[in-house]
Amino acid sequence: MLKILKYSFFDLTRSSWSYVYFLFYLLLGFVLLFLNNDLSNAVITLMNVIIMLVPLIGTIFGVMYYYNSREFTDLLLAQPVKRSSIFLGQYFGVALSLSLSLILGLGIPFAAYGLFKSAVIWDFSMLLVIGIFLTLIFSALAFNIAISTENKIKGFGYAILLWLFLAVIYDGLFLLSLIYFQEYPLDKFSLIASMFNPIDLSRILILLKLDISALLGYTGAVFKDFFGTSKGLIASLMVLLLWVIIPILNIARVIRKKDF
């Protein structure tokens, strides 16, 4: 698998898309820091970007890479290589190169700005960790979609729909159900509902850093326990990890039965 990963990764590092992605983050980082002159503002804007764009780019890139390397995959399938190694290798290649673009693209401007001397470094590292998680999750979801959809156009369509659903629609439905059932105790429900959406989960992790004061304004004991202690952080990270592992296992499961 490591060999496939290596080749996928090198293949991607030559693709102009990786550079576009990298340059985009680089530009964003510099613009945020040097036009804004305010680290906290930059971190908040960055959070919005990471929560929206990282999943989108992860999904599109994942689907695109899978479809683009179909013939390459066929070539590999005839080689004495384990099937799961081929796909997981490609998947990690994509996820790794995207993560690297993210880390370098944002890391360089922040380092240039003197981030390491600032207290914001923890918020920033949290953002990067979450960005990496989201990259891993959404490229895995994209691979899942692409593997089970032969038609490229359909595959792209499903991928965009998935992103739209998790990034926007889910929260709308979530809010509606909260308002609709507001007579009932909802704190458990809302925590559980957040676990089912990796974007919400990541957002909560960031809230734990940025908005803890507002979160503690809520009176419910479950919330208090969750946000007020390290439980929230640990639970959220664990569930995010599950969000990475389950789609990857599913890739391995589906390709075992798949015809090429």
Binding site: A167, F174, L178, S190, S194, R203, L215, Y218, G220
Partner: peptide
């Protein structure tokens, strides 16, 4: 609906 605080900073 105080529980809605969990949606703070969501895109929606």
């Amino acid at each position: 609906t105080p529980e809605a605080i969990i949606l703070l900073r969501s895109t929606f």
